[in-house]
Design a binder for these strands. Sequence first.
DNA 1: AAGAGAATTGAGAGCGCTCTCAACTTTTGC
DNA 2: GCAAAAGTTGAGAGCGCTCTCAATTCTCTT
Lengths: 339, 339
Amino acid sequence: MKRLTLEEIGELAGVSRSTVSRVINGHPNISAPVRQRVEDVIRQTGYQPNSAARSLASSQSRVFGLVMPSILQSAFADPYYPLVIQAISHACNRNDYTPALFLFQTVEEEEKVSQRIVASGLIDGIIVTADTIESTFVNKIQQYDIPFVQIGRPPRSSLADVSYVDVDNEAGAYLATSHLMQLGYRRIGQLATAHNTAGADRDAGYRQALSDRGLPFDKSLIEVSDFSEAGGYGAMQALLDREPDAVFAQSDAIALGAIRAIRDRGLTVPDDIAVVGFDDMPLASSADPPLTTVRQPINRTGVLAVETLIDIVKTSPKPARHIVLPVELVIRASSGAVS
Amino acid sequence: MKRLTLEEIGELAGVSRSTVSRVINGHPNISAPVRQRVEDVIRQTGYQPNSAARSLASSQSRVFGLVMPSILQSAFADPYYPLVIQAISHACNRNDYTPALFLFQTVEEEEKVSQRIVASGLIDGIIVTADTIESTFVNKIQQYDIPFVQIGRPPRSSLADVSYVDVDNEAGAYLATSHLMQLGYRRIGQLATAHNTAGADRDAGYRQALSDRGLPFDKSLIEVSDFSEAGGYGAMQALLDREPDAVFAQSDAIALGAIRAIRDRGLTVPDDIAVVGFDDMPLASSADPPLTTVRQPINRTGVLAVETLIDIVKTSPKPARHIVLPVELVIRASSGAVS
DNA sequence: AAGAGAATTGAGAGCGCTCTCAACTTTTGC
DNA sequence: GCAAAAGTTGAGAGCGCTCTCAATTCTCTT
């Protein structure tokens, strides 16, 4: 079927191009019969406005870039990202935006592609996630005047200028650690992560909980991992030598790796060592034992990122928006609170 | 910084808009000094052509749609998809294409969005994956003349008309099942999947292997699951009553669930029941016990899908391209072949 | 019933690029 | 050394839409 133009739709409906354009864009002040006639023609012909022409004339594309700078193989395999992406995709669909995906594995790739997308007008706004503390990506795009929101807060230095959607990582870690302390555990280790603000905040919550209850902070009880199951396994192996009686893992994947390491050492969860995770991934509830963990609203995070970005595109508000979503502790068997 | 136009670049370089356009698009017959001058100006100004204007004039957008129709929550969490997406993203970046993501959770969503993207010219081509046997998505877009490739073969009925990239699922399952038979197992169950051709082909390979070695086919040894760990757990529980001595799982996630179910029943892998998976996900090698599985080249699948689509866009070749990639058996402890 | 104001519609000028065609310049063949 | 061919550049006409501005029609008021 041949692709129609506004002009041709107008002809079929007996009105001008301008009027058809008004109907499509929902302008007021169109008489009911005309609107009806035009809508009928559009429906019958299956007409879809040409998006290139639209964005050329209106200088907006209704495309958002979803950018994950310097993503690691393992990081992307963490179910967190698929779930965020799914939420973002859905929210975009609902709002007639198209999400374009930009994953960067090397600095050169990031350099080349981000340059192109930021300056070509392909994109109306950017959602950045998985940015590291050290990363320059957010700093880089701040120089252009393209709207963007970050998922996960940026480092303190750019906090004020950047709009973001985050979950309350500190409160979550505080909850998890306090929970373990209430159960009587005293040597509470942490499987931490580096290079991201979520990790830093979870670490802060862990320390705050210890100090609020007067438990001494023991640096040797912290092991650094990446966000993978394998990373958790390795870190826990190292931590086992320090004989913790409980451990707070900064993600469910890490917690699962930790449980495997504990088992391989011939110990039992939670009897010998209690484990708490973070995320409440689907697999947390079916783990063995079911994982006590901090549930974060991943879906809401993605949706709010899209909605915030739409708002920024429309109204370019100052100051930047900061959204922090609450988390909750989900108690299951791995912490020893329930059998 | 103000956004420049072709005209302005031309002015700065002392040539016309047309010449600058030629330089950018790599046309021949530009004198060396002129090309040099223009390239210098472009580099200094950081000029990027406006993509809307470009696609309006050339009627191609250099955007590909990555479509996953009727995706299920659980399906997308399978690490397979993140890995394919990553490969596709990377291949697009390298070829100056932009991947736009379309995940559909409901039929209405699919209807509305696909209508828009197919007819609006936003997209030069489509990569479809995760389509089901019953799905109408591929059939639907066949009616438009938009180039597309499918990842995973389509149902037989549209086989001839559809270009696709697939792995040799049947050979993989054959390998896996034969391996178990060679080890002496005789009651070899299968944790199968429905609604997708990969599942059907793996089932065919499983049956072929049994029949080639004269083992009777026992329908009661097949349980149907989805592609999740939880699905594998449930299906294996049911299968355990039929007392298999080995099981071929159609994915690693399913295999992991199966192992958990076997353990929960107080049995051991591989001593009581051997398990073989499919995919060779990162977690397969670190599983307990390490998983014998069929390795499929996910990265190559994604890259070839992009490259094939680019080729189709450029040359619209007939007949359709069919690419089937080889798989290999990776032997680890879970099948009892190695300790 | 006439004039003011509001509502409705159309005409026209771009948005920034590509691409054809024509003009001009250089090279080549004999 | 001159015509023909090839190489190089510029002008101009769109691509299909949005948006302003002006023209026309309708609706009130008094």
